[in-house]
C-alpha cells in the first residue's frame, strides 16, 4: 500500500506528539514517586492555625521601634536604601494618621496624630496579594503566614497593586551591595523580585518567635489567633483593638491596642 507523503507526515507527527506527551507524563509520575516520605517538620517548630501579632502602642517608643526594625532588617539582610522610591521595608515606622488615614479626626491631639507606630505585612486571612499572583509565588501557608517564594516571583508587581497596606517592596536594583552587614544564615534577594515580611517563617519552623517580637521588650505579642487560650486571644478578648483598613475585608492579623497611650485608652 502506498502512503501519500501528506498522510505519512500527519501520522508521523501525531505519533511523535503522543510519544513526547507520554514521556513527559511518565516523567511527572516518576518525579512524584522519588523519596516522598523523606521529609519531616522540625519537632521544635511552632505550630498554629493563624499566627498574629498584637502591637501595644503604649509600649512603643523610638528606641524599641528601632530595636525591632534593626533586628528584623539585620536578620533578613534587608538593604538600607536612602531613596524613598526604592526603599525596601519589612517593618517600619509610620505615623498614626497615615497608618489609619480613614480615622481622620481634626480634634485629635497633634502628638497622637504624629505619633509613630510600627507597621508591617498584616498577614491577612483573606489576602488580595495571594489572589492576584499569577505564579503562586506569594501564597498562604497553613499557619496563616502570607509567604513569599522569592525563587518563583517573576516581578510583575501585581501584588504591590493589590496590597492595600503598602507592605510590599520591589528590588528595583541588585540589593546586595546595599546590605550593611550580611547575615550568613539567611539569603539576600536579587533584583527584580518582590519581598516583604515573612513573619520569620524560618525562625518559627525552628521553634523561635519572630525577631521583632523578641526585640520589642513586650510591645509586640505573638501568638495563634485561632487558639482561645493564647496570650493574643486573651488580650484581644479583653481590650479594644483596631486593625488597619478592616472595611476592605482582608482580615488583617496584626492588631493595635492602647493607641494614644494608656491615659487615652
Amino acid at each position: 500500500m502506498r502512503i501519500k507523503r501528506r498522510e505519512f507526515l500527519k501520522t508521523a507527527g501525531g505519533a511523535a506528539l503522543l510519544g513526547f506527551g507520554g514521556i513527559s507524563a511518565f516523567k511527572v509520575l516518576e518525579r512524584g514517586r522519588a523519596e516522598a516520605s523523606a521529609v519531616l517538620r522540625d519537632p521544635k517548630a511552632l505550630t498554629g492555625k493563624r499566627w498574629g501579632i498584637v502591637v501595644d502602642v503604649s509600649k512603643l517608643n523610638v528606641e524599641t521601634m528601632k530595636k525591632c526594625m534593626d533586628a528584623c532588617h539585620r536578620e533578613h539582610n534587608v538593604p538600607f536604601i536612602e531613596n524613598p522610591k526604592e526603599e525596601i521595608k519589612w517593618i517600619w515606622k509610620e505615623t498614626f494618621e497615615h497608618s489609619f488615614p480613614e480615622t481622620e479626626d481634626k480634634y485629635l491631639a497633634e502628638e497622637i496624630k504624629h505619633m509613630p507606630l510600627l507597621v508591617l505585612c498584616n498577614h491577612c486571612d483573606n489576602p488580595p496579594c495571594v489572589r492576584v499572583c499569577p505564579t503562586k509565588a506569594t501564597f498562604k501557608r497553613k499557619d496563616g503566614i502570607v509567604m513569599m517564594d522569592m525563587h518563583r516571583c517573576i516581578g510583575c508587581r501585581f501584588c504591590m497593586a493589590a496590597c492595600p497596606y503598602g507592605a510590599r517592596s520591589f528590588n528595583w536594583r541588585d540589593p546586595r551591595p546595599l546590605i550593611k552587614e550580611e547575615n550568613k544564615e539567611f539569603p539576600t534577594r536579587m533584583k527584580g523580585v518582590v519581598e516583604k515580611c515573612t513573619l520569620c517563617y524560618e525562625r518559627l519552623d525552628k521553634g523561635r518567635e519572630p525577631a521583632c517580637v523578641e526585640a520589642s521588650d513586650g510591645a509586640l505579642v505573638f501568638g495563634d489567633l485561632e487558639d482561645p487560650n493564647s496570650e493574643v486571644r486573651k488580650i484581644l478578648g479583653s481590650r479594644y483593638s483596631i486593625r488597619r483598613k478592616p472595611e476592605l475585608g482582608t482580615l488583617p492579623s496584626v492588631y493595635y491596642i492602647n493607641v494614644g497611650g494608656i491615659e487615652y485608652a
Partner: peptide, 29 residues
C-alpha cells in the same frame, strides 16, 4: 509591554509552569 515590565523576565514561563486560575493576570495571558 508585559515582558519589559517584568522584574525577572527569564522566569516568565512560571506563569505556565504554575497555572493559577484565580489570578486575572494568568487569564489575561
Amino acid at each position: 509591554f508585559i515582558f519589559v515590565d517584568l522584574g525577572q523576565p527569564l522566569r516568565v514561563l512560571n506563569v505556565l509552569l504554575h497555572p493559577t486560575p484565580n489570578s486575572v493576570m494568568f487569564f489575561d495571558m
